[in-house]
Amino acid sequence: MSSLLEAQALNAFYGDFQALYEVELSINEGDVVAIVGANGAGKTTLLRSIAGLLKNDAHSIRFNGTPIGHYRADKVAKLGIALVPEGRQLFPSLSVEENLKLGATVGRKGHWSLHSVFELFPILKERRAVASTQLSGGQQQMVAIGRALMSNPDLIMFDEISLGLAPVIINSIYEQLPQVINQGTTAVIIEQDITRALSSASRVYCLQEGRVKLSGRTDELTRQQITQAYFGVAA
């Protein structure tokens, strides 16, 4: 099977600082891929590169075979790649419903609409008119996820959905994840919690200082291998 998204020799920079080195990545349709790594390993940078917030060489990222490394973020979004950014990043001047509607800007058709997002997260329907700043952290995360779904993406990427949330909330969000992904969507999740990453993903990539240290099917890798790649030392 040819892959949906592919990164080849991906190098990413912030000015003179190189954050990613020759990253190779391949994601098949329907996969759930987990990306793990210590703080500063380059996980967010990788997703920002794919999403078009960082410019790269055209051929370093391909989506359905098309080189998109040089695309602007709005063009990438129109192709069907959505990012739930680190720290949620809702629009403070927009209400819950407006945040969600903005996610539909690209106008891609599919399962997700205001109606189906409200069905997935009923609490958001109740709070639709409220400013997004007035929601709890967990509810904000639901808006961030819903907003990304509204574009009916083929590939959805979650950057640390659990960051700063209570364990109960994290559990409930992860319980919803299969519903999200079952709509024919491929997913990438960044998750600090290795156990959770392994249990929800089919493939895993370990980043360390901007390089892929280890990758493979989650059922073929041992926890110890991952921990070692994660910390860069024998644990």
């Binding site: 999403a51 078009g52 917030l53 602007r72 973020a73 709005d74 979004a77 129109k78 959505a82 990012l83 950014p85 990043q89 629009f91 403070p92 001047s93 927009l94 407006e98 903005l102 996610g103 800007t105 690209v106 907003r147 574009s151």
Partner: peptide
């Protein structure tokens, strides 16, 4: 309002 709040994220939404 969205671009005023956050240009990058607005761009991510396809604007």
């Amino acid at each position: 309002r969205a671009v005023s709040d956050n240009q990058d994220i607005a761009q991510l939404m396809g604007l």
